[in-house]
């Protein structure tokens, strides 16, 4: 049973005639890493950003089809049905997101990680401290920052900031994490650390990751979806996609003939 099941999904940006995503069918499997790859403009980020409806920050988007979300209690709901503010909040607490550039909030390291918990209603100080520590340990950042939790998060390096953002997302115990090219702004060493971390995280959460880096997709993902011009061209186990793709387009892209 996939945790997210995208069915006949189309998406149109406001003021545009043609849909940016056309009739997408894609499962995001539980405790697996699904990579979305494809040339820029193929709609992979658009698809990822539909999964937590972050698009809805800007009005006028058109959705068609279904994105079924199966939560830990096996309750199935269609993400696209959500209309109320509180339902959005609930959804986003269950489906977290990590962005291309690190997005540390302008506050201390501790407050950054605690922020999601606080707005989710956790008030107890010791519980906050415990969960922050767990999240930071889980993101392999604890050792580096445990002695300066009250310092501004802006002082961290880019790679540390990104791990902090992952800790922040993990702290609220989401069921799904969406990564939108999380390493594209980082150096190779930080990238390696983040990749290890993502693989580590799939024990607890299901992961979808957009990447422009095919090696990254092949290194860390279990499943890969190749997208092109708003269509889902091919979806399969990662080794199949990279070793014997069924579609010509996929092969061309994988072998670097375009993109």
């Amino acid at each position: 049973m996939p945790v997210l099941n995208i069915k006949k999904f189309s998406f149109t940006y406001p003021g545009v005639d043609h849909p940016s995503l056309k009739n997408i069918n894609l499962p995001i499997k539980k405790n697996k890493i699904t990579a979305l790859i494809g040339p820029s403009g193929c709609g992979k980020s658009t698809l990822l950003r539909s999964m937590n409806r972050i698009h809805d920050l800007y009005p006028g988007n058109k959705y068609e089809g279904k994105i079924e979300f199966t939560d830990e209690n096996k309750q199935i709901s269609d993400i696209l049905d959500i209309k109320k503010e509180n339902e959005f909040i609930e959804l986003r607490q269950k489906i977290g997101m990590i962005f291309q550039k690190p997005t540390p909030f302008p506050m201390s390291i501790f407050d950054n990680v605690a922020y999601g918990l606080k707005i989710a209603g956790v008030k107890n100080k010791t519980e906050l401290a415990d969960r922050v520590e767990v999240a930071l340990k889980g993101s392999a950042l604890w050792k580096e920052v445990h002695d300066r939790l009250n310092k501004s998060a802006m002082g961290l390096s880019g790679g540390q900031q990104q791990r902090l953002c992952i800790a922040r997302a993990v702290a609220v115990k989401p069921e799904v994490l969406l990564f939108d090219e999380p390493t594209s702004a980082l150096d190779p060493i930080s990238t390696g650390a983040i990749e290890e971390l993502i693989v580590e995280l799939k024990k607890d959460v299901s992961i979808a990751i957009v990447t422009h880096n095919m090696q990254q997709a092949s290194r860390i993902s279990d499943y890969t979806a190749f997208m092109y011009l708003g269509d889902l061209v091919e979806y399969d186990k990662t080794e199949n996609i990279f070793l014997n793709p069924k579609e010509k387009k996929t092969e061309d892209y994988i072998t670097g003939r375009f993109g």
Partner: peptide, 8 residues
């Protein structure tokens, strides 16, 4: 977006 994505 990061704030919204956290459920704020």
């Amino acid at each position: 977006e990061a704030g919204i994505a956290l459920g704020a």
